[in-house]
Structure formats: structure tokens, C-alpha cells
């Protein structure tokens, strides 16, 4: 049984850029000398389904996935995905959530409603850090860096600043986009810092 192992779950909707975040994250962890395992379910990602990635690190990691009540932090790129995956968190787990809605088809077609109280309901059960990462990305001039803003926020919320994030970003992001991603990362840290 590996007790020093920490578990991060990234959840979102296909196309939101969770894959790049998991790449940067695992690069930083491996460079720091940790054993790392990562598992993703991406079968239907391109069809707008829900996607999730589990990243686990420690001295020695056995299982690449966890079940209910086992993750330390949930980074949700969309509100409803935060709710869908919340049961994976431990009792005192942390949720970093993008305050953003993507309508699933049953909502878009009028067969169901998208509830308004998600952030509130999550906050009653867990420590929640919520902000609109999409707007913050727009303010930086590129909507696509929303994902790296989420990464920065996670680093702040989970107190992971000791890792070499800058080098991990440089290894995983094309040079052309490195500067804006660096700024996105810092913006994410600042956003979460204000909420912690």
C-alpha cells in the first residue's frame, strides 16, 4: 500500500485541452524524480462526451486509476463535469472548477435543464475554487490557453509550486505559444491565490 501517493483527476468535455495539461503535469512530476502513472479515458472524446484523466505520483505508484473517494484534487474544466466526477474525491478533497457551462445534448434539445446551483452545491461538500478561466484566457488574447490557466490554479490550490513548471511548459508547448502559456499559468496561479 502506497500512502505517500497523491492523485489528481482532470475532467472536462472532449476538445477542452485536458491532454496538454496532463502532459505538462506529468513532465514536471517525472523531472522531479517521482514515479508517475497516468490513465485516460478518451474513447469517445471527439464526439463531445465527458473525458477524464487520472494522474498519480509518489515514491512508487501501483494502480493507474482510482475509484470513489480516493482522489485528492479534481480539476474540472466545466461545471457539470465537476459534479459528475465529484464522488471520486476524498472527503476533504479540493475542486478547482472552471465556472463555465457546455450544454450536453439533452439540455440543448430541451429534454433537461442545466442547473444553476452547481458551484454552490459543490462548495457545501468540498473546498471549491471557482473562476471563469475562459474569460481570463480571452483577456490574455487566446481562448485556448484556458487549460493552462486551470493548471496554474491547480498548482496554487494544491501547493505544488516546488516543481519546475517553466521547464515542463517549455518541453510540451510549441515555442510560438510558450510566452502566452507562461502568462496563462501565472494568471491561473493568481486567480486561485485570490480564492484560497
Amino acid at each position: 500500500m502506497s500512502s505517500d501517493v497523491r492523485t489528481i483527476v482532470l475532467a472536462g468535455v472532449g476538445g477542452q485541452g485536458t491532454i496538454l495539461v496532463s502532459r505538462v503535469l506529468t513532465t514536471a512530476l517525472i523531472d522531479a524524480g517521482y514515479d508517475v502513472k497516468m490513465s485516460e479515458i478518451h474513447g469517445m472524446a471527439q464526439r463531445g462526451g465527458s473525458v477524464s484523466t487520472t494522474v498519480r505520483y509518489g515514491k512508487k505508484v501501483d494502480a493507474p486509476l482510482v475509484g470513489k473517494g480516493e482522489a485528492d484534487i479534481l480539476v474540472a474544466f466545466e461545471q457539470m463535469e465537476a459534479v459528475r466526477h465529484s464522488s471520486i474525491l476524498k472527503k476533504d478533497g479540493i475542486i478547482v472548477v472552471n465556472d463555465y457551462k457546455i450544454m450536453p445534448l439533452p439540455v440543448a434539445s430541451g429534454a433537461a435543464e442545466y442547473p444553476d446551483n452547481y458551484i454552490e452545491a459543490l462548495s457545501k461538500a468540498f473546498r471549491v475554487i471557482a473562476f471563469n478561466a475562459g474569460e481570463a484566457a480571452m483577456a490574455l488574447g487566446n481562448a485556448r490557453v484556458m487549460n493552462i490557466i486551470m493548471l496554474g490554479a491547480m498548482v496554487e490550490a494544491f501547493e505544488m509550486e516546488q516543481f519546475d513548471w517553466d521547464s515542463a511548459l517549455a518541453k510540451q508547448v510549441p515555442p510560438k505559444f510558450l510566452d502566452i502559456n507562461r502568462r496563462a499559468f501565472e494568471a491561473g496561479r493568481a486567480l486561485a491565490g485570490r480564492k484560497v
Partner: peptide
Amino acid sequence: KPETAEVEASAVPRPPVLC
């Protein structure tokens, strides 16, 4: 049973759809 905190809200299914 595993221990987690109950969230008083539920997610609408997000089935895969034709693009």
C-alpha cells in the same frame, strides 16, 4: 463503502453525439 462527501446536485448525462 468508500467515503466521499455528498453533493446535492446531479449531472445530466453527456452522451457522445454526432459532431
